[in-house]
Every structure is written in C-alpha cells, then in structure tokens.
C-alpha cells in the first residue's frame, strides 16, 4: 500500500458516498446515469469474485464489500425506490456497445486464460469506459448539479491517483500490470474534458 493508492481508494469511496447521499437527501436521481451505475455494479461483481477465494487483507476485503454494497444500493435507489425521478430520456447511451467489445478484448488480451483472470480483465476494460453514459448524459443535458460534478471529480481523481500508484510501484517494487495501466490511462483521459470544465467553470448551472 502507498499514499497514492490510499488516496485513490479514499477518493473512490468518497465518490460513491457523495452519490448515495445526493440520491438519498434529494430523494431524486435526476442527472445521474443509471446505465453507468449498472456498468459499475458489473465491474465490481466481475472483479471482486476473488473475495471468496483469496484473502489479501482486512482492508482489501472490507473495501470490496463496501464498493459492492454501495453500487447495488445505488441501483436499488435509482431503479426501485426513486424510480420516478430517473431521467430515461437523457440516459440513452447504448451500453451493449461497451460491454461486448470489453468481453471480446478480455478474451483476446489477458494475462492468463482462466475464468477469474478473464473476469478481472473484463472488469478492468469495462471500468475504463463505464463512465461514458454518465458523461454523455451530462453533455446532453448541458449541465450537472454541483453535487454530481463533485461526484464525477472524485471518481475521475481515483483512477488518476492509481496511475501515480502504478508509477510508484514500478520504481519502488518493480511491479506493474500493463492491462490495468493502459485501461487506467484511458479511463482518466475520458475525464479530461470534464476536469477542464469542473476546474475552470464548475459546470453546474451554466
């Protein structure tokens, strides 16, 4: 564990908590892409199956459970409890165009052709594009509530911090994982446009 990865995990946790609070407090999921939330739940499910087979540390297991619970909790709030406020009309990104290529790519490019490894690779590829429906929805509505933009900033920062973690681990532990690094860079690059807007103008309201 290093400070970059710790800050990244905290940023990730913060993003998920901000989202849950936003939906719970405002009793509305307006402006939030349910499709992205479904993709995140798929990502965590495919990646954290090793929760039952290999124990890394208490921190690792607890965080995996928290991410899984929070992502399914968000889906419950969006599609069941506050279903009436879900903005179908603007959440239209075709997620099958994200899932299928990730499935194919994970079968073609992976470290080991075993079920757990393929699922992990699929989750890494899918996570890198999982935010697209949300960014697409923000661009379509032309704005985002301030709380939603804070959520996106924290979520985008988490993987950017992980890139620093991978640089650190490469020099300090000569450990690196090309698949995670390339996907992580793609994921962070996708936020660049949003980061620019968030930092220069705070995109909410304009």
């Amino acid at each position: 564990m290093n400070v970059f990865r710790l800050l990244g995990d905290i940023s990730h946790l913060l993003a998920i908590i901000i989202l849950l609070l936003k939906i719970w407090k405002t009793r509305s999921c307006a402006g939030i892409s349910g499709r992205s939330q479904v993709l995140f739940a798929v990502v965590y499910t495919a990646r954290y199956l090793d929760l039952f087979t290999s124990y890394i540390s208490a921190y690792n297991s607890i965080m995996k459970l928290v991410f899984l619970a929070a992502s399914y909790g968000t889906i419950y709030l969006m599609f069941i409890k506050f279903k009436a406020s879900y903005d179908h009309n603007h959440d239209t990104f075709r997620i099958e165009f994200l899932i299928l290529p990730c499935v194919l790519l994970s079968l073609l490019i992976n470290h080991e052709f075993s079920p757990l490894e393929i699922l992990w690779t699929f989750s890494i590829y899918l996570e890198s594009v999982a935010i697209l429906p949300q960014l697409f929805m923000v661009s379509k509505t032309g704005e985002a509530e301030s709380i939603t933009s804070h959520y996106l900033f924290a979520l985008g920062s988490y993987r950017a911090l992980y890139i620093l973690n991978w640089i650190y681990r490469y020099y300090a532990e000569s450990h690196y994982d090309v698949i995670a690094i390339v996907a992580g860079i793609v994921q962070t690059v996708l936020y660049c446009d949003f980061f620019y807007l968030y930092i220069t103008k705070g995109i909410y309201g304009q």
Binding site: D9, S54, I56, N60
Partner: peptide, 10 residues
C-alpha cells in the same frame, strides 16, 4: 496462481 496473490489492488 502468483497473479492471484499479486492482485492486491481494488
């Protein structure tokens, strides 16, 4: 198997 152990990141 070594890869499983190495996967200590979330």
């Amino acid at each position: 198997v070594s890869r499983r152990k190495e996967k200590d990141e979330l």
